[in-house]
């Protein structure tokens, strides 16, 4: 059993999601997608920028800014290499609605390709600053565009979906999942897309030596 935890507002999840899908589409291991809604303010502080990119409010330390800038510089290298646009968000989003929509989409998608399409749309549009993750109406439109039923979705967001989401956050933290993307294989956790080779090695029975870490760089893979 393979579970993968993501958060649509994570740049690392964004540059990883297409590669992670290959575990299923190329290697045949069904993925149970789970939202881990990060409270970024709790470990990197908070910041808000104007449309022009000027910081208008922040409680971040110099060290936190250094780490945030390094993270975006890194994620952007890989986004560019995948020919994806990655524009830094102007605020720290509450992505819990989008996370709940992921649970919904996974349960309701008629085809796995529909779920993949939905996730790709949300990721791509969000990182182009075209998707309001906090607006249920926007998520409904994306679900429809991915041919996923939206009947009862709004109620789900506020009721059962919210309960499921919040319970999941607690369960994941207890397991030791603290960031995204994370991979759960049986009771083992792998954090970061650089573990993809090792995750696949585990899924295939751990034959031979454990691979080294490797951030997938597409052109080299052909």
């Amino acid at each position: 059993m393979l579970s993968v935890c993501i958060d649509f507002k994570s740049p690392y999840a964004f540059v990883a999601h297409a590669l992670i899908w290959e575990l299923e589409t190329k290697h045949g291991f069904l993925i149970d997608w789970q939202p881990l809604t990060l409270n970024i303010g709790s470990f990197l502080g908070t910041a808000e920028k104007s449309e022009q990119g000027t910081v208008v409010a922040t409680n971040r330390s110099e060290k936190q800014w250094t780490v945030v800038k390094a993270a975006y510089r890194d994620a952007r290298r890989y986004a560019v290499n995948q020919q994806r646009m990655l524009r830094g968000p102007l605020k720290i989003w509450d992505s819990s609605l989008a996370g709940i929509s992921l649970i919904w989409a996974q349960q309701r998608a008629g085809e796995r390709a529909d779920l993949k399409h939905y996730m790709d749309m949300v990721f791509t549009q969000f990182w182009q600053r075209k998707c309001d993750l906090e607006d249920a109406k926007v998520l409904v439109e994306y679900l429809k565009a991915a041919a996923i039923s939206t009947v009862g979705f709004t109620d789900y967001l506020e009721g059962e979906g919210r309960e499921n989401h919040d319970r999941l956050q607690s369960q994941l933290l207890d397991l030791g999942v603290f960031g995204v993307p994370s991979f759960l294989v049986e009771d083992e956790i792998f954090f970061g897309r650089e573990h993809l080779d090792t995750v696949l090695w585990r899924l295939k029975g751990s034959h031979g030596e454990m691979p080294f870490l490797r951030f997938p760089w597409l052109p080299e893979q052909g």
Binding site: N39, G41, S42, F43, L44, G45, N59, R60, S61, K63, Q64, V67, L172, L173, D174, L175, G176, V177, F178, G179, E188, I189, F191
Partner: peptide, 29 residues
């Protein structure tokens, strides 16, 4: 970087502590 985050409400502090604990457990693995 979490040590630089200003102290917050009890629920926020509880989340920070749980996340830190999760991170330590992961690091052991």
């Amino acid at each position: 970087t979490a040590t630089d985050v200003p102290k917050g409400a009890p629920a926020f502090e509880a989340y920070k502590a749980r996340r830190a604990s999760a991170r330590r457990r992961y690091q052991d693995q």
